[in-house]
Simulated assay, not measured.
Amino acid sequence: MDKHTGNLFILSAPSGAGKSTLYKALLKQDEQVRISISHTTRAPRQGEEHGREYYFTDPESFLDMIAEDEFFEHAQVFDNYYGTSKASIFGMLEQGLDVILEIDWQGARQVRQLYPEAIGIFILPPSLKDLELRLNGRGTDSEDVIKRRMDKAISEMSHYHEYDFVIINDEFDTALSQMAGIFQAMRNKTPVMQQKHNNLINDLLSL
C-alpha cells in the first residue's frame, strides 16, 4: 500500500481579513498541520525573520528560480513576487502532513492546474469597513499602500466562488472552529480512511 499523503490546503483572503491569525492558531492546536514558507522579493516587515515568515530573496534570484522551474506556484502581487517551492510542499505531504498554502487567487489557479486535489478555503471579512479598520490597525503600511489594498479587496473577494469553502472571520473562535472542522473532515474522507485503515476495514468486512 502506498504511503498515505497529507492534504494540500489553499488559504486565500484579501489583506487584513485575518487569515494569518487564523492559521497560526490552527498550527498551535493541530500538530498535523504545517504552513508553507514562501519565497518573496518584498522587504521584511518589523519582527519578520528569513526562513520563518518568508524566504526573502532578491528579484534576480527569484527569476532564476522561475527559470529552473523550482516553484509550485508563483505570482506578482502589487510590486513584489511570491512563490512556493515544489520540493518543500511535496516533502511535507509525503510525510502525511497537511500543508497550508497562504496564497492569492492567482497562485491558487496555478496550484489547481498542477494539483487538482488541493482544497481551497477563502476567508472573508465581515464588512469592508472592518477590513479597512484592520489594515489601519497594523501600523506597518503607508496610507498609499492601504488605499491600494482596499481598492484591490473587492476584486480579490470576487474570486471566492473558486474555492471549496468560505469562512467569514467575524467572531474569531467561530472562524477557527470552522477551519479546524474542515481539516478534520478532509482527513475522514472515504478514500483517505480506506488507505490509512485498509487492514482494519478488511478485518471488519471478513467473516
Rank of each mutant, 00 (worst) to 15 (best):
Y55M: 01
T57F: 03
T57H: 04
P59V: 08
E60H: 11
F62D: 03
D64N: 13
M65G: 06
A67C: 08
F71W: 09
F72A: 14
F72G: 02
F72S: 01
V77E: 10
D79I: 02
Y82A: 04
T84R: 10
K86A: 03
K86G: 02
A87I: 09
I89L: 15
F90I: 08
G91E: 11
G91W: 07
M92T: 00
E94P: 04
L97C: 12
E102L: 08
G107S: 05
A108K: 06
R109Y: 01
E117N: 14
E117K: 15
G120E: 02
G120L: 07
P126A: 02
P126T: 04
K129I: 10
K129A: 15
D130M: 13
D130Y: 10
E132L: 13
E132P: 06
E132I: 05
R134D: 01
R138Q: 06
G139S: 05
T140R: 15
D144C: 00
I146G: 03
K147T: 12
M150S: 04
M150Q: 09
A153P: 10
I154P: 00
I154V: 14
E156V: 14
E156D: 15
E156G: 01
H159E: 00
Y163N: 05
Y163W: 07
D164G: 12
D164V: 04
V166E: 03
V166D: 00
I167K: 06
N169M: 04
E171T: 06
F172S: 03
F172M: 03
D173T: 12
L176C: 05
S177Q: 13
M179E: 00
G181I: 05
Q184T: 11
A185Y: 10
A185V: 01
R187P: 07
K189E: 14
K189I: 12
T190Q: 14
T190F: 12
P191N: 06
P191F: 12
V192A: 12
